[in-house]
Design a protein around this nucleic acid. Sequence first.
DNA 1: CCAGACGTTGTT
DNA 2: GTCTGG
DNA 3: CCAGACGTTGTT
DNA 4: GTCTGG
Length: 291
Amino acid sequence: MCGRYVMALRAGDLIDALEACGIDDVALAGPATGVDASPAGPEQSWRVSWNVAPTSTVPILVERYEEGADEAGTHAGRQREIHPARWGLLPRWAETAAFSSKTFNARSETVVSKPSFRSAVRRRRCVVPVQGYYEWKVSQEPQTGKTVRVPHLVRDRERPLILFAGLYEWWKDPEREAQGRDAWVLSTTILTGPSPDVGEDGAGPAHGDRPVLTELAQLHDRLPLAMSADEAADWIAPGERSREDTEADVERLRLGAVEVARGWTLHEVDRAVGNVRNDSPELIRPPDVMF
DNA sequence: CCAGACGTTGTT
DNA sequence: GTCTGG
DNA sequence: CCAGACGTTGTT
DNA sequence: GTCTGG
């Protein structure tokens, strides 16, 4: 799954990194119109961070068509934009922003039917770009039987970013509305799936898998769903999909995510990452003392 | 019918 | 908004 | 996701 | 044990 990650790039560098990953034509959010990308709150942006936690503001990549553009065939009116969004999806009917602490991940197996996600998954898909994500490996101390959680960083071996499959939603904050402020909040979530099946003891490649899939499976039983640039372009293409098409899209996503994960690498990091108040480049390095 | 939840992960 | 539980 | 709090009254 | 804050 994914409940903590790294996004220490400012807008300009993020756009460059996306381009290096094969995602072109990205702009910062401009004045927006229309149902699916309405009032872009210009006030808030994301904070550079090596320790991004749920409910904080993160950059997401969305795509929409300019008003009046030809939606069939041509890319003329296509707008790919980076918007700041609250991490944790807020359905239209959420009563408070606190709801988002429960929806920072969406299970791909049920996302099409769950009330919180089913609307967004059919027509509000996005990319959540990360430089790497943290996962706490749970194990038992053989002596005491105590449970220990050791944080690891997962990143791509070749590319500067991992492109997570996400959803977004606009939510009108009653509190802000009462204060007469801009009340629209953009929110987002990251899809998850089962970790790759690499066999019982995880010792060897069960069916030709490279070791990293085995490592990932041992790290955790869930995997955040990542995409290649091509898959990402398809995923965020605007327009409403039928429920059946959506099911197929998500299934395809789950299969592709395992292939993308073959390109990852992971290593242990310092326990300091557990406390969200710690935020520095040191967090992504292996621990100082490793024996 | 109304009331209440709407989520994920991990742990037991 | 819409489904589930009672 | 993990870490840390988990409470009230009254005073400054 | 469970919720809140970050």
